[in-house]
């Protein structure tokens, strides 16, 4: 088992290295660099010397392989450099936004679990009844609905609802305050984006729960349990659920990993200063160092979550033993 874990951990590095190369190449294909954008943007006159100085300072005039070696050496020593746009350390730029994005991702995952598990189990238990069809319709609608539109609808609903109930419009607070400082303020801001993304992601998890439960409910041991007269409730909760959870955990784990990088649009709607928004501005400003670091963070989280999900499998299901 331990040799498997170690081997699997080492397998993560080629993927990460590949992603590092890929994003490096992609960014270097972008026409124009950060200096040209900063000084020459919007068609204003830029002193060529100023641009050249800027490029020299950021090492953009070095040969491409030197830039690449610098970049890889930086990652290897956990030195991620400074943002080419703001001149702040990349780690600082990310750190001040990480908590917000992480919290939304965690809350959205919780929302999706709270919605998905009961609905998925219910739909499987009542297969091919109107309950099943309603749940399936609800979850397909969740996949179809863009989370940014759901976000707009939530804001709209809040405005109209508060106007009707309290006589004045209420909007979620704009400034982020950590949950540990002011939980109420924090939740009243972040619960809405969490609901908007959580519903969307619950759709995938609901479908997975339903089909995994159906698989298990057709197993022989469930028939045995039924034939000895166990209550359907006991069969579902004690016998079927545990075995149906494996694929569901995979889906939820992978969703969580994607949420860390996939909040781009939701943060835009709710005007939240998180990693997704940072990524969009880094990309549009050709801020190589920041974009590289952000992409690598997202990819690393994703790869590592996959690894954790694999381990969870073995831990939860004694039949699976890696060697």
């Amino acid at each position: 088992m331990y040799t498997y874990i170690i081997k699997r951990l080492f397998m993560l590095f080629p993927t990460l290295f590949g992603a590092a190369i890929l994003i490096f190449i992609l960014l270097r294909l972008v026409p124009g660099d950060v200096c040209q954008l900063k000084f020459g943007g919007e068609g204003s006159y830029a002193d060529p010397q100023q641009i050249l100085d800027c490029q020299n300072r950021l090492g953009l005039t070095d040969p491409i392989y030197i830039q690449f070696l610098d970049y890889v050496a930086g990652f290897a020593t956990f030195d991620f450099g400074v943002s080419m746009w703001t001149s702040q350390p990349v780690v600082h730029e990310i750190a001040i936004r990480f908590e917000l994005s992480l919290q939304i991702a965690v809350m959205a995952t919780l929302v999706s679990i709270i919605i998905a598990l009961p609905l998925g189990i219910l739909a499987a238990a009542k297969q091919n009844t109107w309950i099943d069809y309603t749940v399936r319709g609800f979850s397909i609608a969740g996949i179809a609905m863009p989370s940014f539109w759901l976000g707009i609808l939530i804001i709209l609903g809040l405005l109209i609802g508060s106007q009707a109930w309290f006589g004045r419009p209420w909007m979620p607070p704009i400034t982020f305050i950590s949950f540990f400082q002011d939980p109420l303020h924090n939740l009243s801001q972040l619960i809405w984006p969490a609901l908007a993304t959580g519903y969307r992601y619950s759709a995938v998890a609901t479908r997975m729960t339903r089909s995994a439960m159906l698989d298990v409910l057709h197993e022989d041991y469930v028939r045995t349990a039924r034939s000895k007269g166990l209550l359907e409730k006991v069969i579902i909760n004690k016998h079927a659920l545990k075995n149906a959870m494996l694929p569901v955990i995979t889906i939820i784990g992978i969703e969580f990993a994607f949420l860390m990088g996939g909040l781009v649009v939701t943060e835009q709607v709710f005007n939240l200063n998180g990693l997704g928004k940072l990524f969009v501005s880094a990309v549009t400003q050709s801020d190589y160092t920041l974009t590289q670091a952000l992409v690598m963070l997202v990819v690393a989280i994703f790869v590592f979550m996959n690894f954790l999900v694999d381990l969870m499998y073995a831990w939860l299901d004694p039949r699976i033993r890696y060697s």
């Binding site: 080629p14 992609l26 960014l27 992409v295």
Partner: peptide, 22 residues
């Protein structure tokens, strides 16, 4: 397959945004 691994490690929207930037 290794190249596919790398591509699959990017969330769809992140990959699409990076390509739009180019």
């Amino acid at each position: 397959q290794r190249i596919i691994d790398v591509f699959m490690a990017f969330p769809l929207i992140i990959m699409a945004l990076a390509i739009v930037a180019i």
